[in-house]
Design a protein around this nucleic acid. Structure first.
Lengths: 231, 231
DNA sequence: CGCCATCTTGAGGTGTATCAAACCCAGTGG
DNA sequence: CCACTGGGTTTGATACACCTCAAGATGGCG
């Protein structure tokens, strides 16, 4: 049931399609690591001498502001990579990483990654493409923070995570609600209230299960301008 | 007084240190373009077949949401690059670009950039480093949007742009106030009010001139937790 | 069962947006 | 020289969105 390390590596978009020789080279220095929920993976400002590929579980990237507040920057899950951003430049981490659930990672020395990038051109261009798409995702996040209200962000999040099971469209929250709230830039209490308000807009809440009963209505919440009132 | 095109190119962090052969190659296909303030450079979702280097002026990157709202994603100035993010992947632009002032750009065909990246390894790694730092800047932006209030973001912005002239610390806004507001994720009216409130925290406003009279006080505004009240 | 963490609900406060009006100021044209 | 114009900015009154603090509800788990 558990994924073998090398399978996990090549399942990651960043390493898929890598020459077998390069995979083997990486696997020689890769080490599997496990973390319990809440455990620290690396700290903000620490030397980035390891990058990680997630084999299972969720990892949260966050920053701590001078006044002790915490900003959740991104959430990452299976086969995504963590810590490359600073590792590739041989700098200190520009964010901290913490296990948001039990998770298994593959740790890779950044020195080896850099060396490989210098030799394997295909890998280098893959790295670039990967970074560019991360950048675009950050654009999305900034856009939603600047133009959408909390309700709209929640609605969009729910629709993104909605899956059809047995004819119904249900949303399984990928991680606990307080993390979902931080991810969307609001407080847990607000998330709770927003979910309650969305019951009037195509959402049904039956004891911890979230169901989308009217997709169009929910999409309407996202489309509508905050200036206009939706009752 | 005006910068020659090739000087502009190599002054850009993305192209500095490039082999003379590569510079020459790019200059053969580079074309200078001018825009008046408010003119469109490229549209969101249009094919990204040109990238740009800014020789002078300011460029704003923005997105238009389904409901007609506009989100300012980033501002760029001299020697920064615009449009590479999607050009390198041969995709459509993930944002629109507009001249925020009179500006001169150097337009480069993305096909040529991609070809050069494939051949010149040094350039490829420069591209990656550049993209990574853009990513980190987006992290900064998300952090400030999620953890700081409007007043704190304004204070931080002012301190970032404060310069010492003739013994006084003054802030010259790089572009008009409505753009500063959009950049910080607030409305122009709010920016106006916030500036007025900051007069009690080390800022002086003398008819369109902004002066930092007490840096520590301003920094205190940023440090303090929004929960605590600052009168 | 009782404990604990997580989530919800309520009351009240702060922050920012909205809409509308006044203001400032550089250009323009009489 | 002065009225007129129009964009950008400020100010005011008001509304809404979201936060804070505190109290309850829920649900897993020893």
């Amino acid at each position: 049931m558990t994924i073998h390390f090398s399978e996990g590596l090549i399942a990651s978009p960043m390493f898929s399609g890598l020459a077998p020789k390069s995979v083997e080279r990486l696997m020689r220095v890769a080490r599997p690591v496990r973390f319990r929920r809440g455990e620290n993976i690396f700290l903000h400002q620490s030397r980035a001498d390891c990058c990680y590929v997630i084999l299972s579980g969720w990892v949260k990237l966050y920053r701590v502001t001078p006044n002790g507040n915490e900003a959740l920057v991104r959430m990452h899950s299976q086969f995504e990579t963590v810590g490359f951003c600073d590792g590739l430049r041989d700098q200190v981490h520009s964010y901290g990483a913490e296990a948001a659930s039990i998770c298994r990672l593959l740790s890779l020395p950044t020195a080896e990654i850099r060396a490989l990038a210098a030799e394997d051109q295909e890998f280098a261009s893959r790295l670039l493409a990967h970074t560019l798409s991360a950048l675009e995702q950050m654009f999305d996040q900034v856009e939603s923070l600047k133009t959408q209200t909390a309700i709209q962000r929640v609605a969009a999040f729910l629709l993104r995570h909605a899956r059809r099971v047995e004819g119904r469209t249900v949303v399984e929250l990928p991680f606990e609600k307080s993390l979902v709230a931080a991810h969307l830039g609001i407080k847990p209490e607000s998330l709770s209230r927003v979910l309650a308000r969305l019951k009037a807009h195509g959402l049904a809440l039956n004891q911890s299960e979230i169901e989308v009963v009217n997709r169009d209505l929910l999409e309407g919440v996202i489309r509508s301008d905050p200036a206009d009132a939706w009752a």
